[in-house]
Design a protein around this nucleic acid. Structure first.
Lengths: 333, 333
DNA sequence: GCCCTTGTTTTGAACGTTTCGAGCAGGATG
DNA sequence: CATCCTGCTCGAAACGTTCAAAACAAGGGC
């Protein structure tokens, strides 16, 4: 391996000067600089990033800790983050936590020992990894969910407002008996979306009926089961609001299996888009989240945090957008 | 930051001994070992991964260079890879090349300067990055596509056989005038799938008509345009084989826009699944690739390559699986 | 009692960079 | 002419680990 010493010898200067030439500092004689560049080219020298990292006590890695890259929500988010990372000179390390606090903690530990420059994390319910990172003062951006007791930059979506908008849309379509499938009680997004559901009902003067609410696990199977349980009610709902994409898919599968159709048998609005929602027939009405933008924003916040670690943390809340499609067509009287 | 020296001082041994205790080597007195562990716990010592990497001249990073994480094919592949990486003690760095040889080359360069332990890459058409890595003898696994002149471990799918099976399925359904939308000429997978299309026709005694073949860009827009061009033929095809998932989506969108339906107006088989292909109505017949398994296999090959760099490269070919759904229903006479 | 062997620990030298302080010209100033 | 700057360059010390080689202790054979 050729080192900075080889280049120094070849160009007749000291390693220190080579270093300054390569790191683009000023205060170096143009003539020497030229010699150094020539030597670099001749020798095919490539700086050793690891050595630089050791010396500088930091790497150019960002970790992104999410529950599962196969969830389209995170896929697009990660893409947004990676695009920012690329322009800022960082690389993104992908970490699937599968909502498992132990895995999250293991990744947090890796972030610390590998001296990564920063982390973007969508916290699991217990969030011990996040606490560990917060304590170590690692630059960190929380995404999608808040964590009690942790002060950190956060990127959220206006869950309550988005959910309310989706439910209001159903109400406007003439539906009154509207059910809700949401996520675990410990997850802030699940509760925020439920709150939106309730506030839309309240605004319309429809009484809240807790028998119409199900808490599932944000996964396909959970949505399926919750849908089944709702359909088995003595008086099934005439419309449904589902609070994430995978559970919506599960609910749709349940309907398909039973030969039921939206919106004729039950009207449907889902939170969070799924790819090609237009191709599903009947096409799916969703409260779309700006997932790419979420990732991008997180990247920008992380960059700023690294540049100025002392600054007080900020929270950015992005707006959702209601995509009206076929499953929420107005009630036929 | 607490270092191995601090631990050594605290436990009354030399740094070397601490190192041996922590790296789990034998030849260390259990009593000392215990003391060291105690000191580690008391001080909250955490080894510095960067320093270790420098000394060992290698990191625990794998890069995965793909065209776009938002393509479900790669999403699932990356997930398979990451699962192997995790059990083997590596981390995965995500690199979206967007089919841009310059970006690919930039990532290849980063792999070298950051001393990453290995790379899994789905090569772009010109593959200069791959050549650079091959020259540097970086452990590398090629995925999905072959590269001329590069000897490396490779994981492929039996494209020709899979395509032939899909097309034969259409022929068996009574269709004869079958079109094909495939990818760029320089990409091996595109040509392999086209070859499968041709061989299925040949086996059935159907003459090959090059007017029924379109080369597009493997993207949604390309599939859309190719579909339009096929529909404008004086005598449009009665069935269609599309050689990747995004172009299939594009083709479906084109049909939807024109108010045409599969399989009544045109029967359809796509190569590569899309998520929730069952939910699309009519549900989509596909030649499914074992995408997760592709990533997993690549990970295992990479692990082996790192363990034994000298071994001759091997190629693994995985089988596709025909998922018969609604869009390929037999022709109604 | 001496020497060799075996098993464990320590010393000290890397690994390849960056950066601090010192050194050294050469010009400006008093 | 001495002194002070200014602008560059260089030497050397980190950064925190691992590992080869040396040192040491203890046990066994002759």
């Amino acid at each position: 391996m050729t080192t900075i010493y080889d280049v120094a010898r070849r160009s007749g200067v000291s390693p220190a000067t080579v270093s300054r030439v390569l790191s683009g500092r000023r205060n170096v004689d143009p003539e020497l600089s030229e010699k150094v560049r020539a030597a670099v080219a001749e020798l095919g020298y490539r700086p050793n990033g690891v050595a630089r990292n050791l010396r500088k006590a930091s790497t150019n890695l960002w970790a992104v800790v999410i529950s599962d890259i196969e969830n389209p929500f995170f896929t697009s988010l990660v893409r947004g983050l990676e695009d920012v990372a690329q322009t800022e000179g960082y690389h993104v390390v992908l970490c699937n936590s599968d909502e498992d606090p132990a895995k999250e903690a293991a990744y947090a530990s890796a972030v610390l020992t590998e001296q990564m420059a920063g982390v973007v994390v969508s916290p699991t319910s217990t969030a011990e990894g996040v606490l560990q990172l917060a304590e170590a003062k690692t630059p960190m951006v929380l995404i999608d969910r808040r964590v009690d007791g942790v002060e950190a930059d956060t990127v959220l979506v206006d869950n309550e407002h988005g959910a309310a908008e989706g439910v209001k849309h159903l109400i406007d379509g003439g539906y009154e008996r509207i059910a809700c499938i949401t996520g675990p009680r410990r997850v802030s997004t699940a509760m925020d979306r439920l709150a939106g559901y309730r506030s839309a009902l309240r605004a319309a003067g429809i009484p809240y009926d807790k028998d119409l609410v199900r808490h599932a696990d944000f996964r396909e199977a959970g949505g399926f089961a919750a849908m089944e349980s709702l359909l088995e009610l003595p008086e099934p709902p005439e419309a449904l609001f589902v609070s994430n994409n995978l559970m919506t898919v599960g609910a749709l599968e349940c309907l398909a299996k039973r030969g039921l159709r939206a919106p004729d048998d039950i009207a449907l609005v889902g939170f969070d888009d799924i790819p090609w929602a237009d191709l599903v027939v009947p096409s799916l009405t969703t409260v779309a989240q700006p997932t790419y933008e979420l990732g991008r924003t997180a990247g920008l916040l992380l960059k700023d945090r690294i540049a100025a670690p002392g600054r007080p943390p900020s929270t950015v809340t992005l707006r959702t957008e209601l995509h009206v499609r076929a499953t929420s067509a107005p009630k036929q009287k």
